[in-house]
Design a protein around this nucleic acid. Structure first.
Lengths: 111, 111
DNA sequence: TCCTTGTATCGAGAACTGTCAATACATTGG
DNA sequence: CCAATGTATTGACAGTTCTCGATACAAGGA
Protein backbone atom coordinates (compact mmCIF):
# COMPACT_ATOMS: atom_id res chain seq x y z
CA UNK A 1 0.00 0.00 0.00
CA UNK A 2 2.84 2.37 0.74
CA UNK A 3 3.71 4.46 -2.24
CA UNK A 4 0.25 4.25 -3.73
CA UNK A 5 -0.57 7.16 -5.98
CA UNK A 6 -3.51 8.11 -3.79
CA UNK A 7 -1.72 8.44 -0.50
CA UNK A 8 0.93 10.91 0.61
CA UNK A 9 3.15 9.80 3.50
CA UNK A 10 1.47 10.34 6.85
CA UNK A 11 2.15 13.69 8.45
CA UNK A 12 4.09 13.95 11.68
CA UNK A 13 2.54 14.76 15.02
CA UNK A 14 0.16 11.88 15.27
CA UNK A 15 -0.68 10.43 18.67
CA UNK A 16 1.55 7.56 19.78
CA UNK A 17 0.14 4.08 20.15
CA UNK A 18 0.69 4.13 23.90
CA UNK A 19 -0.94 7.53 24.34
CA UNK A 20 -3.87 6.39 22.24
CA UNK A 21 -4.41 3.42 24.54
CA UNK A 22 -4.26 5.59 27.65
CA UNK A 23 -6.56 8.27 26.30
CA UNK A 24 -9.00 5.67 25.02
CA UNK A 25 -9.12 4.14 28.51
CA UNK A 26 -10.28 7.43 30.04
CA UNK A 27 -12.84 7.96 27.30
CA UNK A 28 -14.07 4.44 27.92
CA UNK A 29 -14.73 5.33 31.55
CA UNK A 30 -16.67 8.40 30.39
CA UNK A 31 -18.58 6.49 27.72
CA UNK A 32 -21.57 5.52 29.85
CA UNK A 33 -24.63 7.63 30.70
CA UNK A 34 -24.81 6.35 34.28
CA UNK A 35 -21.20 7.27 34.96
CA UNK A 36 -21.63 10.69 33.39
CA UNK A 37 -24.60 11.36 35.64
CA UNK A 38 -22.65 10.23 38.67
CA UNK A 39 -19.79 12.57 37.77
CA UNK A 40 -22.21 15.40 37.11
CA UNK A 41 -23.95 14.90 40.43
CA UNK A 42 -20.61 14.87 42.23
CA UNK A 43 -19.57 18.10 40.57
CA UNK A 44 -22.93 19.78 41.15
CA UNK A 45 -22.73 18.91 44.82
CA UNK A 46 -19.52 20.96 44.91
CA UNK A 47 -18.07 18.55 47.40
CA UNK A 48 -18.80 14.98 48.26
CA UNK A 49 -21.74 12.64 47.98
CA UNK A 50 -22.22 9.33 49.69
CA UNK A 51 -22.58 6.32 47.47
CA UNK A 52 -26.06 5.53 48.79
CA UNK A 53 -27.59 8.49 46.97
CA UNK A 54 -26.55 7.30 43.53
CA UNK A 55 -28.80 4.30 43.75
CA UNK A 56 -31.96 6.40 43.61
CA UNK A 57 -30.41 9.05 41.36
CA UNK A 58 -29.17 6.63 38.72
CA UNK A 59 -32.19 4.36 38.95
CA UNK A 60 -29.91 1.33 39.05
CA UNK A 61 -29.43 -1.42 41.56
CA UNK A 62 -26.85 -0.99 44.27
CA UNK A 63 -24.32 -3.48 42.81
CA UNK A 64 -24.59 -1.71 39.47
CA UNK A 65 -23.81 1.65 41.04
CA UNK A 66 -20.92 0.12 42.94
CA UNK A 67 -19.60 -1.28 39.66
CA UNK A 68 -19.70 2.11 37.94
CA UNK A 69 -18.02 3.79 40.88
CA UNK A 70 -15.27 1.21 40.64
CA UNK A 71 -14.77 1.97 36.94
CA UNK A 72 -14.55 5.69 37.69
CA UNK A 73 -12.18 5.00 40.57
CA UNK A 74 -9.86 2.87 38.43
CA UNK A 75 -9.84 5.58 35.79
CA UNK A 76 -8.67 8.03 38.44
CA UNK A 77 -11.72 10.22 37.94
CA UNK A 78 -13.16 9.87 41.46
CA UNK A 79 -11.96 8.98 44.92
CA UNK A 80 -13.83 7.32 47.76
CA UNK A 81 -13.26 7.84 51.48
CA UNK A 82 -14.99 5.93 54.22
CA UNK A 83 -16.61 7.91 57.02
CA UNK A 84 -18.09 5.45 59.41
CA UNK A 85 -20.75 3.43 57.66
CA UNK A 86 -20.83 5.48 54.48
CA UNK A 87 -18.34 6.05 51.69
CA UNK A 88 -18.14 9.59 50.37
CA UNK A 89 -17.05 10.09 46.81
CA UNK A 90 -15.49 13.13 45.22
CA UNK A 91 -14.16 13.91 41.75
CA UNK A 92 -10.47 14.34 41.01
CA UNK A 93 -10.53 17.68 39.17
CA UNK A 94 -6.98 17.37 37.91
CA UNK A 95 -7.89 14.14 36.16
CA UNK A 96 -10.76 15.80 34.32
CA UNK A 97 -8.39 18.61 33.45
CA UNK A 98 -6.02 16.02 32.00
CA UNK A 99 -8.79 14.83 29.70
CA UNK A 100 -9.48 18.36 28.49
CA UNK A 101 -5.80 19.00 27.92
CA UNK A 102 -5.37 15.73 26.05
CA UNK A 103 -8.26 16.66 23.77
CA UNK A 104 -6.54 19.94 23.00
CA UNK A 105 -3.07 18.53 22.41
CA UNK A 106 -3.81 15.16 20.83
CA UNK A 107 -6.81 16.16 18.73
CA UNK A 108 -6.25 19.87 18.11
CA UNK A 109 -8.47 21.92 15.84
CA UNK A 110 -8.60 25.61 15.12
CA UNK A 111 -12.37 25.81 15.43
CA UNK B 1 -33.34 5.96 50.66
CA UNK B 2 -34.52 9.53 50.20
CA UNK B 3 -34.31 11.48 53.40
CA UNK B 4 -31.53 9.36 54.81
CA UNK B 5 -29.45 11.18 57.39
CA UNK B 6 -26.32 10.69 55.31
CA UNK B 7 -27.52 12.25 52.09
CA UNK B 8 -28.47 15.83 51.35
CA UNK B 9 -30.88 16.34 48.44
CA UNK B 10 -29.08 16.28 45.12
CA UNK B 11 -27.86 19.65 43.91
CA UNK B 12 -29.30 21.21 40.79
CA UNK B 13 -27.43 21.49 37.56
CA UNK B 14 -26.82 17.85 36.92
CA UNK B 15 -26.73 16.59 33.36
CA UNK B 16 -30.05 15.37 31.97
CA UNK B 17 -30.58 11.73 31.15
CA UNK B 18 -30.88 12.47 27.43
CA UNK B 19 -27.76 14.64 27.37
CA UNK B 20 -25.88 11.94 29.25
CA UNK B 21 -26.81 9.40 26.60
CA UNK B 22 -25.75 11.70 23.77
CA UNK B 23 -22.46 12.67 25.37
CA UNK B 24 -21.71 9.06 26.25
CA UNK B 25 -22.25 8.11 22.61
CA UNK B 26 -19.55 10.50 21.44
CA UNK B 27 -17.16 9.36 24.15
CA UNK B 28 -17.86 5.79 23.09
CA UNK B 29 -16.73 6.64 19.58
CA UNK B 30 -13.54 8.13 21.00
CA UNK B 31 -12.94 5.21 23.37
CA UNK B 32 -10.80 3.13 21.03
CA UNK B 33 -7.07 3.51 20.31
CA UNK B 34 -7.46 2.75 16.61
CA UNK B 35 -10.11 5.43 16.16
CA UNK B 36 -8.05 7.95 18.12
CA UNK B 37 -5.09 7.30 15.85
CA UNK B 38 -7.26 7.68 12.77
CA UNK B 39 -8.57 11.01 14.04
CA UNK B 40 -5.07 12.13 14.94
CA UNK B 41 -3.74 11.23 11.51
CA UNK B 42 -6.59 13.11 9.85
CA UNK B 43 -5.89 16.21 11.91
CA UNK B 44 -2.14 16.00 11.39
CA UNK B 45 -2.68 15.79 7.65
CA UNK B 46 -4.39 19.15 7.91
CA UNK B 47 -6.79 18.13 5.22
CA UNK B 48 -7.95 14.82 3.94
CA UNK B 49 -6.62 11.28 3.83
CA UNK B 50 -7.87 8.42 1.74
CA UNK B 51 -9.13 5.39 3.56
CA UNK B 52 -6.51 3.12 2.02
CA UNK B 53 -3.74 4.67 4.11
CA UNK B 54 -5.28 3.79 7.42
CA UNK B 55 -4.86 0.11 6.76
CA UNK B 56 -1.09 0.28 7.00
CA UNK B 57 -1.12 3.06 9.61
CA UNK B 58 -3.46 1.30 12.01
CA UNK B 59 -2.01 -2.14 11.39
CA UNK B 60 -5.51 -3.54 11.03
CA UNK B 61 -7.27 -5.36 8.24
CA UNK B 62 -9.22 -3.34 5.71
CA UNK B 63 -12.69 -4.34 6.98
CA UNK B 64 -11.64 -3.39 10.51
CA UNK B 65 -10.56 0.07 9.38
CA UNK B 66 -13.79 0.45 7.44
CA UNK B 67 -15.71 -0.47 10.57
CA UNK B 68 -13.93 2.15 12.66
CA UNK B 69 -14.46 4.78 10.01
CA UNK B 70 -18.15 3.97 10.08
CA UNK B 71 -18.28 4.43 13.85
CA UNK B 72 -16.55 7.79 13.55
CA UNK B 73 -18.89 8.76 10.71
CA UNK B 74 -22.03 7.87 12.67
CA UNK B 75 -20.72 9.87 15.63
CA UNK B 76 -20.41 12.87 13.31
CA UNK B 77 -16.68 13.13 13.94
CA UNK B 78 -15.55 12.52 10.35
CA UNK B 79 -16.94 12.79 6.86
CA UNK B 80 -16.12 10.78 3.77
CA UNK B 81 -16.27 11.95 0.19
CA UNK B 82 -15.71 9.78 -2.83
CA UNK B 83 -13.24 11.00 -5.44
CA UNK B 84 -13.22 8.44 -8.14
CA UNK B 85 -12.01 5.13 -6.79
CA UNK B 86 -10.95 6.46 -3.42
CA UNK B 87 -12.83 7.87 -0.46
CA UNK B 88 -11.21 10.80 1.27
CA UNK B 89 -11.94 11.37 4.90
CA UNK B 90 -11.80 14.57 6.90
CA UNK B 91 -12.62 15.49 10.47
CA UNK B 92 -15.59 17.65 11.40
CA UNK B 93 -13.89 20.26 13.60
CA UNK B 94 -17.14 21.65 14.94
CA UNK B 95 -18.05 18.22 16.27
CA UNK B 96 -14.78 17.97 18.17
CA UNK B 97 -15.42 21.46 19.46
CA UNK B 98 -18.81 20.28 20.68
CA UNK B 99 -17.10 17.57 22.70
CA UNK B 100 -14.76 20.08 24.30
CA UNK B 101 -17.62 22.43 25.07
CA UNK B 102 -19.70 19.62 26.55
CA UNK B 103 -16.81 18.67 28.81
CA UNK B 104 -16.67 22.27 30.04
CA UNK B 105 -20.39 22.75 30.57
CA UNK B 106 -21.53 19.31 31.70
CA UNK B 107 -18.51 18.38 33.79
CA UNK B 108 -17.13 21.76 34.87
CA UNK B 109 -14.25 22.11 37.29
CA UNK B 110 -12.29 25.10 38.46
CA UNK B 111 -8.93 23.42 38.02
C1' DT C 1 -22.68 -10.29 70.88
C1' DC C 2 -26.43 -9.70 67.73
C1' DC C 3 -28.87 -6.81 64.63
C1' DT C 4 -29.20 -3.19 61.25
C1' DT C 5 -27.50 -0.54 57.49
C1' DG C 6 -24.22 0.77 53.86
C1' DT C 7 -20.81 -0.93 50.58
C1' DA C 8 -18.18 -4.27 47.80
C1' DT C 9 -17.65 -8.66 45.50
C1' DC C 10 -19.22 -12.87 43.15
C1' DG C 11 -21.63 -15.26 39.59
C1' DA C 12 -24.45 -15.50 35.67
C1' DG C 13 -26.99 -13.99 31.69
C1' DA C 14 -27.82 -10.71 27.92
C1' DA C 15 -26.04 -7.36 24.97
C1' DC C 16 -22.40 -5.10 22.81
C1' DT C 17 -17.63 -4.56 20.55
C1' DG C 18 -13.31 -5.47 17.95
C1' DT C 19 -11.46 -8.36 14.63
C1' DC C 20 -10.97 -10.54 10.16
C1' DA C 21 -12.07 -13.87 6.05
C1' DA C 22 -15.25 -13.91 2.49
C1' DT C 23 -18.01 -11.40 -0.37
C1' DA C 24 -20.44 -7.64 -2.65
C1' DC C 25 -20.43 -2.95 -4.42
C1' DA C 26 -18.29 1.17 -6.87
C1' DT C 27 -15.28 3.22 -10.07
C1' DT C 28 -11.76 3.46 -13.55
C1' DG C 29 -9.18 1.73 -17.51
C1' DG C 30 -8.56 -1.28 -21.37
C1' DC D 1 -18.10 -5.61 -21.53
C1' DC D 2 -14.40 -7.28 -18.62
C1' DA D 3 -10.59 -6.92 -15.40
C1' DA D 4 -8.39 -4.47 -11.63
C1' DT D 5 -8.46 -1.78 -7.51
C1' DG D 6 -10.48 0.64 -3.54
C1' DT D 7 -14.29 0.51 -0.28
C1' DA D 8 -18.33 -1.32 2.28
C1' DT D 9 -21.01 -5.11 4.07
C1' DT D 10 -21.85 -9.75 5.92
C1' DG D 11 -21.11 -13.43 9.05
C1' DA D 12 -18.81 -15.48 12.68
C1' DC D 13 -15.94 -15.70 16.74
C1' DA D 14 -13.69 -14.10 21.02
C1' DG D 15 -13.58 -10.83 24.42
C1' DT D 16 -15.70 -7.24 27.03
C1' DT D 17 -19.43 -4.68 29.38
C1' DC D 18 -23.80 -3.80 31.71
C1' DT D 19 -27.02 -5.48 34.79
C1' DC D 20 -28.76 -7.55 38.99
C1' DG D 21 -29.67 -11.35 42.63
C1' DA D 22 -27.16 -13.45 46.13
C1' DT D 23 -23.68 -12.99 49.28
C1' DA D 24 -19.80 -11.26 51.99
C1' DC D 25 -17.53 -7.45 54.34
C1' DA D 26 -17.46 -3.05 57.31
C1' DA D 27 -19.10 -0.15 60.90
C1' DG D 28 -22.20 1.48 64.44
C1' DG D 29 -25.96 0.85 67.98
C1' DA D 30 -28.74 -1.79 71.37
Amino acid sequence: MTGNPCCPPLAEGTISAADAVDLAAVFKALADPVRLRILSALLAADGQICACDFVTTAGKAQPTVSHHLKVLREAGLVEGARRGTWVWYSVVPSRLADVRRALQTELPTTV
